[in-house]
Structures are given as C-alpha cells and as structure tokens.
C-alpha cells in the first residue's frame, strides 16, 4: 500500500524550514498568478519556477505524478467538451461534418497546465509542511476575523484534530483490512456481492472506533480543563525569519513578472527580438 497522497515527508530543505505562513501566502499568490489569463511564455516561466521548487524541496517527481492520477479522466472529459463547444481559432480537421478548432485545443491545454501547476504547488506545500503548522498558519491568517467574533481558534482546533486523526484512521483501516482478510474477505478478486459485504465489515468497525476515539478524546481534553474560549499560549511559536522575507519577495517578483508581462505582451516580443 502506498503512502497517502500529499503526506508530509520529513526531508530537510530550505522550503521545509520556511515559516508555514510564508508558504501558505506564497501558494495563494502563485495560484492567483496561475489563474490570470497568461500567454504561453508566462506559463513556461511558471512551469520552470514550479520545477525549481520541486527540486529545491526534494519532493519526488513520482509522488507529484501520483497526485495527477485521479485527474486523467477529468482532463479527457474537458477536452471532449471543449472540442464540442469552442469554435475559435483555425479549423484543424473535420470528421463527419464536425470541425475541430485550434481554440478548443489551446483552451484545454491551458486548463490542464493550470490544474497541473496547482496540484504540483499544493503537493509541495503539503509535503513540506507539517499539518499542525499549516493549521497554525490558517489560524493566524483568520485571526483578524476574531474582531467579528468569528471562532478562529475552534476552527483551527477542529482542523488540526481532523488532520491528526487521518494517519490513525489510515493505520486502523490497514489493520482491519488484514483482520477481515484473515476471515476470508477478498476485496481484490471476490464477487461483487462479497466485495460489498467486505466493505461493510470495514466501515462499521471504523465508524465505531472513530466515535469511540472522539468521545475518549473529548473526555481527555475536558479532564485537562480544555476551554475553547480561554486565552491560550502556544508551545511552538511561529517564527518569521529573513529567509521568509526573501522567499516572499522572490514569490512577489515571480507573480508580478508573470502578471505584468501578460498585460504587456511587448516585453516578451522585445525579448524575442533581442534574442535574434
């Protein structure tokens, strides 16, 4: 069984060491840039940036490709719809009085590049940042909303508890699969009816234990005097260092360059001329 997608992988890289707030902000900024109406050159630029980030963060290309896996069907579907609907650009070829236009292909390509970039960048974030740090970052960004009595702490606590229990439930599922396999459940090659019965034998115990765990957790938290409204200090302080400032500046530059050049196509043209 392979490890859950996008799971934190404890390598040591400059990206791992960045403040989670920096990384979250940078991700959002880059995503905004990606979803601007960019031309070919800006996408090429962003792809290079993304590849560089992958290399620096030591995330395996294989794990990023794995993250693409569930998307193939969606991409195919998009292509078909675009080909049917979009009638811009040059006519490429005609099958049985239906003409396919270059616009459709370009549009699809653009969406695919955007999605691929988005998934790669998000995977970089989740595999270089501990889930708990990420929730601290989210809580920090939401903190201004506290003025409006928005329960930022409760939300952050809920998210971090949910994240905390993903590996636990994953482990438990693995154990249950083995236990029920020992009782003759064959989830791989059995008949459909058997497989459904087999799934029930996993889901029921999982739910039972999840409810039990959450009750125990609530008791344990109350026993230690947990009060969501209380003012709290934190064991781990987020620490905004020089490298974070540098990181944010680099990110801002990347975002600015790609958006600016998309509004001023003459820059790229000058570059091309200059190259010649």
């Amino acid at each position: 069984m392979n490890i859950a997608l996008g799971r934190y992988i404890p390598y040591d890289s400059i990206i791992h060491r960045l403040d989670p707030r920096t990384k979250l902000l940078a991700l959002i900024a880059l995503l905004v840039a990606i979803f601007f109406k960019l031309s070919f050159w800006e996408y090429a630029f962003l792809i290079v940036v993304c590849l560089a980030l992958i290399l620096i963060s030591k995330v395996k290309f294989r794990s990023i490709l794995q993250a693409f896996k569930p998307m193939w069907l969606m991409m195919l579907f998009l292509l078909i719809i675009n080909v049917l609907v979009i009638k811009r650009g040059d006519a490429l070829f005609t099958i049985a009085s239906f003409t396919c236009y270059s616009g459709a292909i370009f549009q699809t390509l653009q969406i695919i590049i955007r999605l691929a970039l988005m998934i790669s960048l998000t995977t970089i974030l989740t595999s270089t940042t501990k889930p708990l740090d990420l929730t601290y970052a989210i809580e920090w960004f939401l903190s201004p909303l506290r003025v409006l009595r928005f329960p930022t702490h409760e939300i952050a606590m809920t998210i971090s508890l949910a994240l905390r229990f993903i590996p636990t439930l994953f482990e438990e599922t693995q154990k249950l699969i083995k236990a029920q396999a020992s009782r003759g459940v064959d989830l791989q090659s059995g008949k459909l009816k058997e497989k459904i019965g087999g799934l029930v034998s996993l889901i029921v115990p999982l739910f039972v234990s999840a409810f039990q765990k959450s009750e125990e957790l609530a008791d344990a938290m109350e026993a230690r005097g947990y009060n969501p409204g209380a003012k709290r200090t934190r064991y781990r302080k987020l620490d905004f260092a020089i490298r974070d400032l540098v990181g944010l500046l680099v990110c801002a530059l990347i975002v600015f360059l790609s958006i600016y050049s998309s509004y001023h196509p003459e820059i790229v043209r000058t570059l091309e001329i200059w190259k010649n």
């Binding site: 438990e172 249950l176 083995k178 236990a179 020992s182 029930v200 029921v204 115990p205 234990s209």
Partner: peptide
C-alpha cells in the same frame, strides 16, 4: 489469525 485486540473487528 487472531490480531491484537480482535474485539475491534466485530461488525
């Protein structure tokens, strides 16, 4: 095979 704490596999 009887796993550790097999009571969790009842359903």
């Amino acid at each position: 095979m009887v796993f550790q704490f097999p009571e969790y596999q009842l359903f």
